[in-house]
Design a protein around this nucleic acid. Structure first.
Lengths: 226, 226
DNA sequence: AGGCGGGTGTGAAGCGCTTCACTGCGCGGT
DNA sequence: ACCGCGCAGTGAAGCGCTTCACACCCGCCT
């Protein structure tokens, strides 16, 4: 698939015409990242914005003693790394490839020129950043007001809402997630995540098999989230 | 002071020329809010962006059982409420006047038209939203990785960095803050905030009197923040 | 003066999450 | 086939923050 076709699916570029897309394509570099490879670290100087062509990327925070929180899971057609391009500050998060991943990148100056000439893209970016602010604000809300049980439920409902697929047993979350990853999405330890996950499996609200989670009864689960 | 003069001090409008500022001024409404008055609630439909002409506003999250977290303290020249204008979603936070406050407001459609015609404002907003994302991300970082002591220190250093004034005893945080408010800035209870605040007062790193906090030894305090 | 509300200062008890320790399983590598 | 390692599952213990319960002070209202 050509660059243009992919770019046309990226939210901030979807309003662009064929010609603009071609011009943008000319600015791109491609690189493959191995599973687990770090794309950038918190604190790095940010010189590029990335678009996912293939694979999955986790945006995460990490602490000196090895703890991690996952802020977002991204896949094909998503982009990231825009903040450092917009305000010039260092990377505020890590970005890691969760599997073999192909990324397109646009260098800072190229992007600025492109952006300045196309106000529509800026408007799209604004809507996108707004959603980002809301999402992170929601994380603050959940981590300060909710207990472990409710946090897990919220995260699962959110995953299901974003990428869930209706299956015969219920709504399936397509990504394979280890319990450690799930814990990092919730801001909990693996152990307590395991405890509540199993609790809801016993209750019949969830199914968990081979890293794949199914929301057997999403409506009842919603009621569990306060 | 005229509207234009104030607007020229607002970060996203500071690059505008006199004529643009006049046009913008014509779109404004003014309203006074009493101390403690709610400007909007989380979940409300957002129809306006606000600029603070006088007074102080807290942006906060609240939970059904009466807990609160303060995400930001804003004052003269700051603006808020832009998210709902950009993406059309309901308010993600509450906004409350901390004292008698005068606000200028711009209605959604007026702002959109103005914004569409002035790409520079959009670019300024992008930089501003980027900073906002970083700030909220930092909150997630702190609430998940740091203990109560370090959270308090971080919040105090942040307040001092943003609005601190050099005084004879050290860096003074100009706002009067009750310990409950400070606790809500840290995402802690009043009691544990009090405990650590007193601890640092005893240690000689802080002074606290009549709601006014002084960082007696900012450098040593920084070292306390992990 | 008296009373009351809001803010501060503090200790005791409780609770929920983490930490730690260990078992068992499945899969990939050699 | 075997080893090693990452992941899942689980219980016991510990710890840090919250909750609860008061005492005290000060300013304001009547």
């Amino acid at each position: 698939m050509s660059y243009s076709q992919l770019l046309a699916q990226v939210s901030i570029f979807e309003q662009l015409e064929g010609e603009d897309l071609e011009q943008l394509s000319a600015l791109l570099r491609t690189r493959r990242y191995a599973k687990g490879e770090v794309i950038f670290h918190q604190g790095d100087v940010g010189t590029a914005l990335y678009v996912i062509r293939k694979g999955e990327v986790a945006i995460r925070l990490s602490s000196p003693d090895g703890k991690e929180v996952i802020l977002a899971l991204l896949d094909r057609g998503d982009f990231f790394g825009e903040l450092a391009l917009l305000d010039g500050e260092p990377r505020s998060t890590d970005a890691v490839a969760r599997e073999e991943t192909d990324l397109l990148s646009i260098q800072r100056e190229d992007f600025r020129v492109f952006l300045n000439a196309r106000p529509k893209v800026a408007l799209g970016l604004l809507a996108n950043l707004s959603r980002l602010v809301r999402h992170v604000t929601q994380l603050v809300h959940d981590t300060t007001f909710l207990d472990a049980r409710a946090r897990l439920v919220r995260v699962l409902l959110e995953l299901a809402r974003n990428q869930g697929q209706q299956g015969s047993e219920g709504v399936v979350i397509p990504q394979k997630l280890t319990q450690t990853e799930l814990a990092n999405l919730c801001g909990l330890t693996r152990e307590s995540t395991n405890k509540w996950l199993r609790f809801y499996v016993r209750e019949g609200l969830l199914a968990y098999e081979g890293g794949r989670i199914t929301l057997v009864h999403p409506a009842r689960l919603s009621r569990e989230a306060e």
